[in-house]
């Protein structure tokens, strides 16, 4: 294995069902139900998934959900905004920990 990530691995995701088929089926059923149209449209769910994919920095997910967003009719403006939301939450999550830093500083400092 010359590198950890290979784009062809995405199409082999189903291999994960080989040694634990019951668990794989449960995951698949739940996963597919999650992305059915509900209170949110399929297009909105795909944009959320795209944002989460970026927050997780999962190349497989970014690949798959970029395509899915396009297929569901989203445009680059909408997809970019979704990525900014992911980035903003990640940035905010880092920044809010600064409060902990400030508290520690207060505890340790004269």
């Amino acid at each position: 294995m010359s590198h950890y990530y290979d784009e062809h691995d995405l199409s082999r995701f189903g291999d994960m069902g080989r040694n634990a088929p019951d668990l794989w089926d449960k995951f698949n059923d739940w996963y597919q139900a999650t992305f059915q149209e509900g209170s949110l449209t399929g297009r909105e769910k795909a944009l959320i998934a795209l944002g989460v994919a970026h927050a997780l920095q999962c190349p497989y997910c970014i690949d798959a959900w970029s395509q899915e967003c396009l297929e569901k009719g989203s445009n680059l403006d909408q997809m970019t905004e979704a990525v900014h939301i992911a980035a903003a939450i990640r940035g905010g999550a880092a920044l809010v920990h600064g409060v902990q830093m400030r508290k520690r500083n207060a505890q340790l400092s004269m």
């Binding site: 449209t41 399929g42 297009r43 396009l70 297929e71 569901k72």
Partner: peptide, 18 residues
């Protein structure tokens, strides 16, 4: 028609959006 190397999504959903 999709404007790239991807398939069209659900026709009814696209119609609503358009």
């Amino acid at each position: 028609n999709p404007t790239g190397a991807f398939l069209p999504g659900d026709q009814d959903a696209l119609e609503r959006e358009f």
